[in-house]
Write a protein that binds this DNA or RNA. Structure first.
Length: 524
DNA sequence: ATGTAC
C-alpha cells in the first residue's frame, strides 16, 4: 500500500468528517423536531398541548404558545421535555406553560410559567432561575432622535462611564452589612431614600420595587459578600442599557397613557437583575432543596427541579431569601436609573425634569410570587374558585389586565405595561397585559427574544465577525466591555422577538403597544 | 445569568 494513497485517505477523511458530523446533527435535529410534532396536539393556530400522558408522573398537561414555525424551533432543544418535567411537580395547577420564547434552562425551561398551590404544592429555585428578578426598567424622555443623534457618541460614552458593567465588576457604592440588610428589606425604596431617584418612580414599579416577606436573616454571608460591591451595576451576558427610539405605535391612546407620544421619541431601557447576590442565593437554596426532597419524599424526573413544599420551613426560607434577591435587583435598577438621569443631564446640559426623564414601568421576568387566581376546583367539576398560588415565572413576564388592583393608578385603564427586550441591535416591544392572560396563564406572557443558539455555538459560528462594525453601519453606537460578549449576544443567536410578540398577541395574552429600535447600546 | 470550575 503506497503512502500516497494513505495520505489521500487521511486528507479526505479530514475534509469530509466535519461535513458528515454536521449532516448527522441536522438529521438528528430534524428527527427530534418530528418526534415533538408527533407528541404535541394542536389546539389552535397558536396553542399546542403536551398531553398529560406524555410522561409518567405528569399532574397536568403542558401548554405551548407557538405557531407551527416556532414549534419547529422549540422542538430542537430539550425545553419541551422540561415542560413535561415541570408538570410532575407536586401541587401544580392548570398547565405547565411555555411561552414562544422558551428554550432550555436549569431544570425548568426559560420562558416557562408554573403555578403551584400554596397549601400542598412546592416552590423551586429552578423555577425562578439564577438571576432572581432579572427584569426590565423603561424610562421615557421628551427628547427626539433628531436632538439626540448629534450627541449620541458622547451620550453612550457618558452612560458607559456612569453605569459600571462587566462580569464580576463592582460599582460606586460600598455597603456595610447593616446597609445591605436595608437594601434587601426595602428594595427600590432604599435607593430613593438615599437620593438615587425620585419617589414618583416607586409607584411605577412592579410590586413598588419592594417584595414583601423579605427576610435578610435567610440570606447567608456569601451572597452579601458577592452582592455588596455590585449594587448599581449592569453585569454581563444579555444584560444591557439601551438608548432607544420609538419606531412604531400600534395603540396610540395606550402609548399616550404611558407618556409615549409617537415616532421619534427617545426612551431608555435597562435590562439587569440581582447580579452575584441573586446567583448565590439560588445556589445556596438549591443545596437546601436537595435535602428537602429527601426529607419530604418528593420524587422528581430531574434533580435540577429540587424543591420544597411552599408551606415548609425550607420553602418559606427560600421565598424570604428570594424576596431579598428581588429587592436587591429593584434597588439595582433604581440606582442605574439615577445615574442614567445624571448622564443625560451632563450631556444635554439640562435638568432631568427639563429632559422629562420619567419611569414608564419596571417588570421582573425571573420571580416566584404568591398570588390569588381563579382556577377550576377539581372536586366540584366546573365550579371555579379563588386559590392562593405560588406563580413561578422564569423568563416570563407578569401581564395583568386593566383594572387589576396590583397595577399603578396611571395604568388602571390600559393594563400593566409589559416590557419585552429583543436581541442586541434589532428592536424591542412594549405591550400590555390582558384578561385572557389572567384567565389562561396566571397573568403572564413572554419575556424577550429567547436564545436559539448556545453561547458556545454562537462563538463558533460567528468568530471573527465584526459585530460592532455591523451595528455601527446601521447607525447604532456601541460601547461594550468584551468582544466575546458581543459575539454571544449577536442577533443570529436569538429568535426574532417580533415573531414572539406576534404569537402572544394572536393568542391574546399580551397586546403590542409600541415598537422601539436601538440608537445606542451599552454592554458588559 | 455567574468571582464563565473549588
Amino acid at each position: 500500500m503506497g503512502t500516497e494513497e494513505q495520505s489521500t485517505l487521511v486528507t479526505q477523511s479530514c475534509l469530509y468528517r466535519p461535513v458528515a458530523v454536521l449532516k448527522g446533527v441536522v438529521v438528528m435535529l430534524k428527527e427530534a423536531v418530528e418526534e415533538w410534532m408527533g407528541a404535541v396536539r394542536k389546539i389552535d393556530d397558536y396553542r399546542w398541548e403536551l398531553p398529560q400522558n406524555y410522561k409518567e408522573g405528569m399532574n397536568v398537561p403542558g401548554l405551548v404558545f407557538a405557531d407551527e414555525e416556532m414549534m419547529r424551533v422549540i422542538g430542537r432543544d430539550q425545553s419541551l421535555e422540561q415542560v413535561a418535567n415541570v408538570a410532575t411537580l407536586p401541587g401544580i395547577v392548570g398547565r405547565s406553560m411555555a411561552m414562544p420564547d422558551i428554550h432550555w434552562g436549569y431544570g425548568f425551561p426559560i420562558g416557562g410559567v408554573a403555578a403551584t398551590r400554596v397549601n400542598d404544592g412546592v416552590v423551586s429555585p429552578g423555577g425562578v432561575g439564577f438571576d432572581i428578578n432579572c427584569g426590565v426598567r423603561l424610562l421615557r424622555t421628551e427628547l427626539t432622535e433628531v436632538e439626540v443623534r448629534p450627541k449620541l457618541q458622547e451620550l453612550v460614552a457618558a452612560l458607559y462611564t456612569a453605569v459600571p458593567s462587566g462580569v464580576g465588576v463592582g460599582g460606586k457604592l460600598r455597603l456595610d452589612a447593616k446597609e445591605i440588610d436595608k437594601v434587601l428589606l426595602n428594595g427600590a425604596l432604599w435607593a430613593v431614600e438615599r437620593g438615587y431617584g425620585l419617589h414618583e418612580d416607586l409607584e411605577l414599579l412592579e410590586s413598588q420595587g419592594r417584595l414583601p416577606g423579605a427576610d435578610p436573616t435567610k440570606v447567608g454571608s456569601k451572597p452579601r459578600q458577592r452582592g455588596a460591591p455590585q449594587l448599581g451595576t449592569l453585569g454581563a451576558g444579555n444584560h444591557f442599557l439601551e438608548v432607544q427610539v420609538v419606531e412604531d405605535v400600534y395603540q396610540p391612546e395606550t402609548a399616550q397613557a404611558m407618556g409615549i407620544h409617537g415616532y421619534g421619541q427617545v426612551l431608555v431601557m435597562i435590562h439587569t437583575g440581582s447580579r452575584g447576590l441573586g446567583h448565590q442565593v439560588c445556589e445556596d437554596y438549591l443545596k437546601v432543596m436537595d435535602g428537602a426532597i429527601k426529607r419530604y419524599g418528593i420524587h422528581l424526573p430531574d434533580r435540577q427541579l429540587a424543591c420544597a413544599p411552599v408551606s415548609s420551613p425550607e420553602g418559606q426560607d427560600y421565598l424570604a431569601a428570594m424576596a431579598c434577591g428581588a429587592n436587591f435587583a429593584w434597588a439595582n435598577r433604581q440606582c442605574i436609573t439615577h445615574w442614567v438621569r445624571e448622564a443625560f443631564t451632563q450631556v444635554f446640559q439640562k435638568s432631568p425634569h427639563e429632559l422629562g426623564i420619567r419611569t414608564v414601568y419596571d417588570v421582573a421576568h425571573n420571580i416566584a410570587k404568591i398570588e390569588e387566581h381563579v382556577v377550576p376546583s377539581p372536586s366540584s367539576g366546573q365550579v371555579s374558585k379563588r386559590v392562593k398560588l405560588c406563580v413561578h415565572r422564569k423568563g416570563a413576564t407578569r401581564a395583568y389586565p386593566a383594572g387589576h388592583p396590583e397595577i399603578p393608578a396611571a395604568y388602571q385603564g390600559i393594563g400593566q405595561p409589559v416590557l419585552i427586550p429583543g436581541d442586541m441591535g434589532r428592536y424591542s416591544f412594549i405591550a400590555v397585559g390582558t384578561e385572557q392572560a389572567m384567565a389562561e396563564t396566571f397573568g403572564s406572557t413572554c419575556h424577550g427574544a429567547g436564545r436559539m443558539q448556545s453561547r458556545a455555538a454562537a462563538m463558533r459560528s460567528l468568530k471573527g465577525t465584526d459585530i460592532r462594525g455591523r451595528l455601527e453601519a446601521r447607525g447604532i453606537a456601541v460601547q461594550a466591555g468584551s468582544y466575546r460578549g458581543l459575539l454571544e449576544e449577536a442577533s443570529e443567536a436569538y429568535k426574532d422577538v417580533a415573531h414572539v410578540v406576534d404569537i402572544t398577541e394572536k393568542a391574546g395574552i399580551s397586546l403590542k403597544v409600541v415598537k422601539v429600535r436601538p440608537l445606542g447600546v451599552i454592554k458588559g
